[in-house]
Design a protein around this nucleic acid. Sequence first.
DNA 1: CAGTAATCGAGACGGTACGTCGTGTCTTATG
DNA 2: CATAAGACACGACGTACCGTCTCGATTACTG
Lengths: 203, 203, 203, 203
Amino acid sequence: MTKMTTSTRSPGRPRDNKVGPSLLAAARQLVLQHGYCGVSIQMIATEAGVGRQTLYRRWPSKAELVLAAFLESAGDADVLSDGRAEKRLLHFLVNVFRNLQQDGPAIRNLIASAQDDPEFLKSFRAGFVEPRAEIVATIFRDGIANGEILEDADVEMAVAAFHGAFWYHLLLGGKLDAEFAQRLTRLIMKSISKEPREEELLK
Amino acid sequence: MTKMTTSTRSPGRPRDNKVGPSLLAAARQLVLQHGYCGVSIQMIATEAGVGRQTLYRRWPSKAELVLAAFLESAGDADVLSDGRAEKRLLHFLVNVFRNLQQDGPAIRNLIASAQDDPEFLKSFRAGFVEPRAEIVATIFRDGIANGEILEDADVEMAVAAFHGAFWYHLLLGGKLDAEFAQRLTRLIMKSISKEPREEELLK
Amino acid sequence: MTKMTTSTRSPGRPRDNKVGPSLLAAARQLVLQHGYCGVSIQMIATEAGVGRQTLYRRWPSKAELVLAAFLESAGDADVLSDGRAEKRLLHFLVNVFRNLQQDGPAIRNLIASAQDDPEFLKSFRAGFVEPRAEIVATIFRDGIANGEILEDADVEMAVAAFHGAFWYHLLLGGKLDAEFAQRLTRLIMKSISKEPREEELLK
Amino acid sequence: MTKMTTSTRSPGRPRDNKVGPSLLAAARQLVLQHGYCGVSIQMIATEAGVGRQTLYRRWPSKAELVLAAFLESAGDADVLSDGRAEKRLLHFLVNVFRNLQQDGPAIRNLIASAQDDPEFLKSFRAGFVEPRAEIVATIFRDGIANGEILEDADVEMAVAAFHGAFWYHLLLGGKLDAEFAQRLTRLIMKSISKEPREEELLK
DNA sequence: CAGTAATCGAGACGGTACGTCGTGTCTTATG
DNA sequence: CATAAGACACGACGTACCGTCTCGATTACTG
């Protein structure tokens, strides 16, 4: 036996695997510094000490590159693996808001970029939106499983309302703080949880 | 006596008041035809048979002009003045969705434009967002007044979740149809209405 | 009578008539300094303190601009208006060679540029080649008129051989000095003048 | 003993001696098809099924490669070995013009390429210009030897005028036909041949 | 009824970013 | 070593908009 691996290694000079990360780092730093629109493709390439073409070889647009750059930092969303749904939601939201403290402006611009670039919209959904939606959906489904949440709850819509509400604030320049997180979580939970209303409990 | 009013009319040639509307019309038509990003300021001015400066004299940016153009058509939001809150919400939403059928792409781009232009964000909030938020808030407050909705409902957050949910879908390219409207309305109403849960009714 | 001139002055802001000359000057200086290929359109525009578009508005290519720049200096070809043909030819050639001392490299590159750009070739012929050809042709025709040169001399071909010979040297990097001028003039004159051969005179 | 020859055969993989010719062929075909400037080094390499480096290992530039490619076809210049000088010149010229029918555009671009690349200019002179100059010079010298041409004829200049005249036409897009060949030959011969003038013969 | 001043269409102007192209060098694995 | 493939840094290209400016011409009110 001669060759184990089907090692379909493409011929030619392999891509320098230091250049991708250095582009991501450059993108991230420059966007945080000058804002998304204040940064050109040229600037990122120059900062990374790289030719422009080398960038285009990896990402088709500034938006895709910046998305990748900000996905890294946001990837490590720490999520409570169990506990009451409301608590887990709140914890998630507080974490997200903390990230947005720094990344908010960039994320807003990525959402903006997706509005006239269907290809990027797909990337953005797949890389950013859906993972986060899934986290929240999982919390809801766990809640159903352990009896906290109504069996017939409209999970999909609850997720949309949950994320939508803070996108709405984010995109409109509103403040995203702990109080907001609490109120939003409360609102959604009221809609889908089994727990009797407080008012009724008092009766 | 020649003139009654001391009307501080500025000297010089008065503005041609046909030019504003023709710019709005041109903007609207071109954006619907080629998409927001497919239209340049020059194109709009040319289409309206107007110099570029004449446009800048009235609006500071493409976004502001297009906002004005699309505000006109959306201005005549017909809202039920009374009835049950859920019904009124649903009616509003269906109307909005009907408008978005045509204007959706433009609105998405306006939201996008606001993400890196604080000045325009203010205009957009004042002209587009807040009027619509107020309509929904009013419905909620009416609901409280007539006992449909809990006195301590978080109206502001409910509005954010309500609008946010369909913005979320709009910006992500989701479908905005009657079913979505119904499910969203239901979710929000469940959260804030007094009506006892179905489950409890069955007890 | 109200208006005399049909003054078809085009509308819009008139072109700044200082910008053309400053571009020509910049082009000339930079090309002399760094060579034709060492100069980019951007460099010329920057040197002239002008936007790139402003340059493209006046000339369609670097070649056309540089041609114009070097036409100016070469325009003042001083030509003897009478005298013996051979003397006038020689005087012309010496003058040309003096110009080429400085402009030679640029001219060579202009000829080169014309080889893959038919549009520019036309400009180059009209602006550079033909005026110079005409000067020499005129000398020949004067020579015919005053009996120095054969009536049936092939003026066109003589011009081609005259100019061609020194283009040949120019393009091949040969030296263009007074001796060359003398020998070339002699050769051509021998071909077309009436004067009996020296050899025959000696018989 | 395995190998006989001490032949200083370089170590490593020997050059594939099919690759050179296939590059020449690819270059020739592509340049004839798309024009010199319409062809990139990459295209030639790809057409020949060869890596780019392999090309650079053999020729330092596109110009050198294309020169080599077109030298092949032009190498077989058939020249009359004796006869009257004028006849031999004419025959040569007609042959050259026939070649230029096809290769003209490429040759023009090679001349152009030489204008900003001294290294290539040397190659071009050595490979293309001088052999052809020598052919013509030889014809002239033979003419001197057999008494057709004046002993003190300026052969070098005659060659320059002869070649220069048709370069001039070639580079300026003029037509190179039999009539041109005849007129040019006539002009040069008149200048350097011993034959008495027609006018004088009629005396 | 001349003077003043702002508006209008048109287009020049200095900039900036874009995406593509070609060049010559380099770096792999495979002969 | 040579080779095919392709990455890489670089830099020019021509285009598209942008927001501002500068024209002649127009159109009102003012003194």
